[in-house]
Design a protein around this nucleic acid. Structure first.
Length: 407
RNA sequence: GCGGCUAUAGUUUAGUGGUAAAACUCCGGGUUGUGGUCCCGGCAUCGAGAGUUCAAUUCUCUCUAGCCGCC
């Protein structure tokens, strides 16, 4: 049997939204699905058992971080990522490609995965040259062969190539892993976007070749290729065609975006993708962005926002986001989410209580808020899946957005 | 009762004859394949009164409060 199999179940009538089943050796993922991020083999602040109770089906860890700490061999000795972290379900690893961006061009800058429309140009320079890198304090330098990193932990020098990333991810042993790619900033010029995209394509072929070389890993692990191309629809189409033609087990849509061009860039890519392959929208996102992705036919989503926002005091509610540390919540004794059903792990806690914990720096505050947010997104996505199956996804999405933005 | 010291943001402290700095707190904002218990803003007219001076938070005097010592 293949490492994974994917079956489409339902397609929505008036959008590209679809419901499917992704089967791995560690269990089934019903898609669309939200994948909580477990960068260093843990979803920050949430026990695996609680994660499962909240509805998580699969988690995503990071190659670069686990390679540095504790080292992929330790994870391998433990029996692979899932066994190491005591997570029974399916696992995914990201290739470390995103760190080319976050430690390179985006390092120390105001830009992250999403870029402000008015970000100054010098904030988003590509780091393709060691002199530029040291001048800008970046920790990653790209060349055609691969990327050299300076560890953010101890300053030591490391090098990733597509082959090395595959090798490390074989050791980590996740059910699904990604090809090593270059994630560019949307504000790079067209020529650089094209150049980086073509480099990502060459790296994709090398990743596949390295993977196929390891017959043992082939039986257990599926490899997803990543579409790049920045904000340009022609590049996105070209990249989607190219990546789809190579024989990957699934497709990731990568890249950083500005709010304005996510929709178009995604749409351009998706129309070129074969329907039978599972599609992962990397690093997305906010509730509205996830629903947009689902409407365009994406199956998997991962994002750090739920946990990051949670531990810093921002929580999701059906009526929009809420800053728990604001003064007004000091004596707000309503539940975090008044709409959440009793019995949900975090439903018994009041805003005033969690605000107090967060203000006091108590760990439990971050734990509860993170669980609440992850649970919120999981429920949003599983609700979307049910709506697709029931043929009412459009209404589901419209209703959610209306209440979320007007709340 | 006498002598000395101190009095700057909610707190702990800088500092200057020309309208005040920092940390923490507080108030608000940010955060999309996690370098994040993080990042960015905002909040004081310097105990009260009088005097000297072009100008005082800064010098002088008085008062008040606190601390220390002595009787």
């Amino acid at each position: 049997m293949n490492a994974i199999s994917f079956a489409l179940e339902t397609r929505a009538p008036r959008s590209a939204a679809r419901a499917g089943t992704l089967t791995t050796r560690h269990g089934v993922i019903r898609t669309p699905a939200f994948v909580p991020v477990a960068t260093k083999a843990n979803v920050k602040g949430i026990l695996p058992e609680a994660l499962a109770a909240l509805g998580a089906q699969v988690v995503l860890a990071n190659t670069y971080h686990l390679y540095l700490h504790p080292g992929e061999k330790i994870v391998q000795e433990a029996g692979g990522l899932g066994a190491f972290m005591n997570w029974q379900g399916p696992t995914i690893t990201d290739s470390g490609g995103f760190q080319v961006f976050s430690l390179g061009a985006a390092f120390g800058k105001t830009i992250s995965k999403f870029v402000k429309k008015d970000a100054p140009q010098e904030e988003t320079l590509a780091v393709y040259d060691e002199n530029v890198a040291s001048q800008h304090g970046a920790l990653a330098v790209i060349d055609d062969e691969g990327v050299s990193f300076t560890s953010h932990l101890d300053g030591s020098l490391h090098r990733f190539t597509p082959e090395r990333s595959v090798e490390i991810q074989h050791s980590l042993g996740a059910d699904i892993f990604f090809a090593f790619d270059e994630c560019t900033s949307p504000s790079e010029p067209y020529d650089y976007q094209k150049e980086a995209m073509e480099r990502t394509h060459r790296w994709a072929e090398r990743s596949l070749k390295a993977h196929r070389h390891n017959l043992e890993a082939n039986k257990k692990q599926a490899l997803f290729g990543i579409v790049q191309g920045g904000r340009h629809e022609d590049l996105r189409r070209e990249s989607a065609r190219e990546i789809s033609s190579l024989g990957f087990d699934g497709i990731g849509i990568g890249g950083s975006f500005s709010k304005e061009d996510m929709r178009g860039a995604l749409g351009a890519a998706v129309t070129e993708l074969p329907p039978e392959l599972p599609r992962h929208f990397l690093g997305i996102g906010e509730p509205s962005d996830i629903l947009e992705g689902i409407a365009q036919g994406m199956d998997l989503f991962d994002c750090v926002a739920a946990t990051r926002l949670g531990r810093h005091g921002t929580i999701y509610t059906p009526r929009g986001v809420l800053h728990l540390k604001n003064e007004r919540y000091k004596n707000d004794f309503t539940p975090l989410n008044p709409a959440s059903a009793p019995g949900v792990l975090t439903s018994g806690f009041t805003r005033a209580y969690v605000a107090h914990l967060l203000r006091s720096g108590e760990m439990l505050g971050a734990v509860i808020a993170s669980m609440h947010n992850v649970g919120f997104i999981l429920k949003l996505v599983s609700g979307a899946r049910q709506a697709i199956v029931d043929g009412r996804f459009d209404e589901y999405r419209a209703d959610f957005i209306r209440e979320y933005t007007n709340g």
